[in-house]
Design a protein around this nucleic acid. Structure first.
Lengths: 122, 122
DNA sequence: CGTTATTGTTTACGCGTGTAATCGTTAGTT
DNA sequence: AACTAACGATTACACGCGTAAACAATAACG
């Protein structure tokens, strides 16, 4: 199953801290997204149906927590994009940003350090 | 406007070679995708409406060509993913694949060479 | 010149999504 | 015990998308 864009905003909240009550998730997302609380409730329900989150009773309310790992979600989305656009390879994506002059000095420094770490660390 | 997944398959064909007649696009995509030619026709029309492609008459048929560059499309999609999942930075994406052990030796070699080129070439 | 084939245009339809209101149920409150 | 507030569940609805059939127009062929 697929986590939609709007749903992923809710997931972000739960990935950052969980378990949370619906109220907390509303507080964390509604302002930033301009959502009514009913919207958040709907998204929570859809995520439950999709088994992307679980709810456990806590008195009269539920506390929600993620069932899917953020890293799994990130990986699926990244792999899908890489496969579709860059033949599954990371290097061509970096090359693309390089060609577009979208790599800052910091990016380049980070990448350089990273490659170094990968090479000796494994 | 947004180019959908199915539409991007048609765009791929046109990015590879253009202009093409509908017949050619059907030939190139229908088999691989399991599409009826009617489906391709619909996608072409939606792409025309979105101004993602243009058509010029060629006798009784039309020849289609892309109006949006592949690199623009790729850039929009990549930037969107990077922004949503990696705080807009390339290095964290590479780090993610590294953590997941999804970088092959070739990837690492490519990246190393690329960083080298960027550093002295600009 | 009428019939057929070709190619583009219009219409269709179910599903997921974004967005939200309303309903129902349960727990407090008086 | 009745009333109200809180919270989750159900229902709603328009829009884009994937998928395709039906229709229309035009050109080719006999």
């Amino acid at each position: 199953m697929q986590i939609s864009d709007a749903e992923s905003i809710v997931m972000d909240t739960l990935w950052e801290r969980s378990p949370l009550a619906a109220e907390d998730i509303v507080a964390a997302t509604a302002e930033a997204q301009g959502w009514q609380e009913a919207t958040v409730k709907t998204l929570l329900n859809r995520l439950l149906t999709k088994k992307a989150i679980a709810a456990e009773r806590d008195g009269r309310r539920y506390l929600y927590r993620p069932l899917v790992q953020r890293s799994d979600y990130v990986h699926a989305a990244s792999t899908s994009l890489l496969d579709r656009l860059f033949d599954g390879r990371v290097a061509p994506l970096v090359a693309h940003f390089s060609e577009q002059r979208k790599l800052t000095k910091k990016d380049i420094a980070d990448l350089k350090r990273l490659i170094g770490e990968i090479e000796d660390g494994g």
